[in-house]
């Protein structure tokens, strides 16, 4: 059985990395945007593997259902639907790439050399929805409410920036 989990892990890791690479290096913005789908799906799968069932669903709904669509709209609006070359070129890649590689190396060293806070025996994953709901409404009530204020502000702000868009025409 562990092999199956490992297999799933490897498969989704591959998906994530492939999607990320496309996102980072593709010359076509539409490809990059779509590759985000791969990353999000892969991460959602990881959430599931880690036992965060609620989060996996949220990731799929919010990211793929919301943010992804938003991006695609934005890409098409800013590039013109008829415009074929939706380019997404890079600059300074030869300077940034080595730095990124070094950074990854350093992080890898960090990951393997650190004694992370890990419990001895990993408990079985249990459904988390209920506990998340409970915690949100007790201990994490303040952030929960504050986030609602933030979202109200963002809503109004984004609309106000966009509304002018319409009015300007």
């Amino acid at each position: 059985m562990p092999d199956l989990t490992l297999l799933i892990f490897l498969a989704f890791s591959g998906l994530i990395l492939g999607a990320c690479l496309v996102l980072a290096f593709s010359k076509n913005l539409v490809y990059s945007a779509f590759s985000l789908l791969g990353t999000f799906t892969g991460v959602a799968a990881f959430f599931a593997l880690l036992g965060a069932d609620f989060l996996a669903i949220a990731q799929l709904l919010v990211y793929i259902g919301g943010i992804m669509v938003l991006y695609l709209f934005a890409v098409l609006m800013t590039s013109g639907i008829a415009d074929v070359k939706v380019t997404n070129r890079s600059i300074g890649l030869k300077f940034a790439l080595p730095v990124a590689v070094i950074l990854f190396g350093l992080l890898a060293k960090l990951i393997f050399s650190t004694e992370w806070f890990v419990v001895k025996e990993l408990p079985e994953a249990t459904p988390t929805t209920a506990s998340i709901g409970n915690t949100l409404l007790t201990q994490y009530l303040l952030p929960f409410e504050l986030a609602s204020v933030l979202l109200l502000g963002v809503l109004v702000g984004a609309v106000s920036l966009g509304r002018r868009e319409v009015k300007g025409d």
């Binding site: 303040l142 952030p143 504050l146 204020v149 933030l150 502000g153 963002v154 702000g157 106000s160 920036l161």
Partner: peptide
Amino acid sequence: LMIYLSLELVSILSYVVVGS
């Protein structure tokens, strides 16, 4: 979590007023 949330509260709303 509060650090992140309140930092973002300040930041995201600032983005909008900067572009106003």
